[in-house]
């Protein structure tokens, strides 16, 4: 019963996750400068996340209507060493 319940929960969670993503509403941006990655705890796990380091860039993005919270890493598995 526990296993069944867990499976249902994972299934529902995955539906929610997929439901949150819609590439047709997204933009991919490559920042050559001004943005850095930091590792911080989220829900008890360490995850990499983007931080706008440059205040100048932060201001520009805000003027363009882009908040830092709207950005997420596109390729969390990417390792430069693999290429």
């Amino acid at each position: 019963m526990k296993t069944f319940t867990l499976t249902i929960l994972i299934f529902l969670q995955s539906l929610v996750c997929f439901a949150q993503r819609d590439p047709s509403r997204e933009i991919l941006i490559f920042f050559k400068e001004g943005v850095t990655l930091i590792t911080k705890p989220v829900n008890g796990k360490l995850v990499k996340t983007a931080t706008i380091k440059s205040n100048e860039l932060k201001t520009k993005l805000q003027k363009a209507g882009i908040e830092e919270s709207m950005l997420e890493i596109a390729m969390p598995r990417f390792k430069q060493a693999d290429t």
């Binding site: 933009i27 941006i29 490559f30 920042f31 596109a74």
Partner: peptide, 24 residues
């Protein structure tokens, strides 16, 4: 390229991607 610098931006409802791309 170091693709860790590639970010995904979700465009708010009611906004067009084209507007953001032009500014970016």
């Amino acid at each position: 390229l170091d693709m860790t610098k590639l970010f995904r931006l979700k465009v708010p409802e009611g906004k067009l991607r084209k507007e953001f791309i032009e500014k970016l």
